[in-house]
Structure formats: structure tokens, C-alpha cells
Amino acid sequence: MEGMNRVEDDVSAFAADLRRLRLHADNPTLTRLQHTSGVSKSVLSEALAGRHLPSVRTVDALVRALGDGDHRDDWISRRDELAEQRMPTLEHPSGPIPRGAAPIANDLQRSVTAKATVAIAGVALIAGVALGSWSTAWILSLR
């Protein structure tokens, strides 16, 4: 964990530290890391490039595969801190929702959106069946 870039931490710095860890582990290929970590090469590549913040599972598997399992909790804590920094603070009529509560609010929003989507699809299906029956009856009446 020494040499970790904690000053002005962001996803790029996190990825740079993962790359540094990879170099200290004799720079294994992505194919080798895929076999030892169980994470796909594309996900590993994105994590090491800093394109986005990797998941907890990816960080855990990568750190273990690179031989730094003793510091696994430190890496995951750092990743979680970055995830929390990146979360928008949601507004609520009673005031802003604290950052730690944002995942719950986001899950609730996704749940409501999913239920609304299912409801709309159901109405569309019923309307389609009704229109299909009506159009079939209309076509048959033309004969």
C-alpha cells in the first residue's frame, strides 16, 4: 500500500496505483491476470486504464492476483471512498440526502422506474391485444 496516491485521489490516481502494483508483481499479462483473478481481460484493462471506477469484486480479485491481498481492505476502502465522492447528492423536499444514503435512494429510483416500465409495457400489451382483436374483426367484416 505504500506509494498509494491519496492526495487529490481520483479514479486516474487509483488506476495508476493499480498499475504500479502490477509492475511490482512482475507485470503479468492481462491473460495471466484473467486466469488468476477470474475477471475478464476487458474489465481488467478498463480498471487499469482508469476509464471508470472498478467494482469491489474487480478490485478485490485484482489486488489478490497481484499479491497484495494483505492490503485488500485498504484498497476496497479507498475504492469505496472514491465511489462515494462521485455520487451526486440527491435533493429531497426535506433537504439533501446524505451521500451515504444515496445508494438506497438510487436503488429506490431504479425500482420505481422498473415498476413503471413494467406497467407501461403491460398496458401496451393489453392495448395491442385489444387492437389486434378489433382489427381482425374489422378485416373479417370486410369479407
Rank of each mutant, 00 (worst) to 15 (best):
Q85V: 06
V123H: 03
R19V: 11
L44V: 04
S77H: 09
P54C: 01
P98C: 04
L33G: 02
L53K: 04
N27Q: 14
V7K: 14
R99A: 14
N106I: 08
L18C: 04
D80R: 15
S40D: 12
D70R: 03
L62S: 00
I139N: 05
G128E: 07
P103M: 06
V63S: 01
A16H: 09
F14L: 10
R19P: 02
A137D: 14
R22P: 03
A83W: 05
T117R: 13
L82Y: 07
P88Q: 12
S111V: 02
L23M: 11
V7P: 00
I139Y: 07
L131F: 12
V56N: 06
N106D: 09
E8W: 01
P96V: 06
S40W: 01
G3R: 07
G38K: 10
A119W: 06
Q85W: 03
A61E: 04
A16I: 08
S111A: 15
L125S: 10
V118Q: 12
L53M: 11
Q109K: 11
E8T: 06
L30P: 05
A137Y: 14
L82F: 09
S40I: 00
R64M: 03
P88Y: 03
T58C: 10
R6E: 06
P88L: 08
A13G: 13
L62F: 02
I120T: 12
T36A: 09
L131P: 01
A61R: 07
P103A: 09
D73H: 10
P88W: 07
D17M: 05
D74L: 10
A116K: 11
N5A: 08
I97N: 02
L48M: 08
L140W: 09
A13F: 01
G128N: 05
Q109V: 09
D73R: 09
H52E: 10
L21M: 15
M1F: 02
L33I: 12
S40E: 07
S94I: 13
S42Y: 01
R79A: 13
T58K: 00
W75H: 03
L53N: 01
A130F: 07
R6Y: 07
S94A: 15
A127L: 15
D9C: 13
H71E: 11
F14Y: 15
E81M: 11
D70S: 08
T58V: 06
V123F: 05
S37F: 05
H35T: 13
A15K: 03
T89M: 08
D70H: 07
A105E: 05
L53E: 06
A65V: 04
S111H: 13
G132H: 11
A121G: 01
R86G: 10
V112K: 07
H24R: 14
A15W: 04
T89R: 07
H35E: 15
E8K: 12
R51F: 06
R20C: 04
R72V: 10
L131G: 15
S42D: 11
V123M: 05
G100D: 11
R20F: 07
M4K: 07
L53G: 01
D107C: 07
M4D: 03
D10N: 15
L18H: 05
L23N: 07
N5E: 06
M4G: 02
V112W: 10
N106H: 11
V129A: 14
S141M: 09
S37M: 05
